[in-house]
Nucleic acid binder design. Structure first.
Lengths: 136, 136
DNA sequence: ATGACACACGTTATAGCATAACGCAATTGA
DNA sequence: TCAATTGCGTTATGCTATAACGTGTGTCAT
């Protein structure tokens, strides 16, 4: 369960906490979980998150102001963490999040951008609703 | 330019401010613009925004924590403000936002959800990047 | 070695976004 | 008339994120 190489101690701690959680965590929640490991200030979390986001190991859920570990392993399909756009289905009842990739969606949005000469940097797709269990 | 019927004074004021802006505004920016009209506290803005969001007259940009007036008129295409999922292209340089609808994307995401028995409540699609002018 | 640089870290303070909880006033409808 | 609903105003608070400062450590070209 230990994290990828090349991570600093703080980055590893933050990544491990996210990896072990089955729901997204806010930066402040992460902070609380790491107080026993010497974390004292939000910046320690945010700085680690920035690096993990850069590497694609963690995603930010914009509609929740929260973070999740990437569901993909280093070498998986679309280039592992190097993948393209990621989409999320977020259950508003149980908090569970499913990460997925829809190439057809990506392509359609790419086409839209190309037609308008818009240069995409980052695309957010988040579906909030109820998962199968919670909708029952 | 006066707003739709059925709006309270505060709701109209907030909607007018958003309608006149060519970039998204945060709740606190709206508050500042309305101090001369008697606004004193954030809650006055948030309460008005809640109602406008319910009616679909205003959209929230999750990746910016900001708000824009809906680009559609009451009776337009997909049922005017009753439309389905809305997508946004946000220029990170000039701040300009383009609202659009991509039915192909909506359908693909709907299919994904149906296959997994996920019940969507609200879908967020936001592309951040550079608009044609700013990319030059 | 030494100096310059990049980078991670720790701390304090502050900025920016959002809601809780209270009470009052006006409206509606049984 | 009474109860329920809705909007409003105010104060206080909580959550999210970054600014600005200084420290330590490693690299590496000189």
């Amino acid at each position: 369960m230990t994290a990828a190489p090349g991570l600093t101690k703080n980055q590893s701690l933050v990544f491990d906490v996210l990896s072990r959680s089955d729901a997204p965590l806010s930066a402040y929640t992460i902070l609380d979980k790491l107080r026993d490991h010497g974390f004292r200030a939000p910046l320690q979390v945010y700085r680690a998150l920035d690096k993990l986001l850069e590497r694609g190991m963690v995603h930010r859920l914009e509609s929740l102001n929260a973070f999740v570990a990437c569901a993909h392993q280093e070498k998986e399909c679309c280039g592992g963490h190097g993948h393209g756009t990621v989409a999320f289905a977020i259950c508003e009842s149980c908090g569970h999040v499913v990460e997925f990739h829809e190439h057809a969606v990506d392509h359609r949005l790419d086409d839209w951008a190309r037609e308008r000469k818009f240069k995409p940097a980052k695309t957010t797709i988040e579906i909030r609703g109820l998962c199968e269990q919670c909708a029952a």
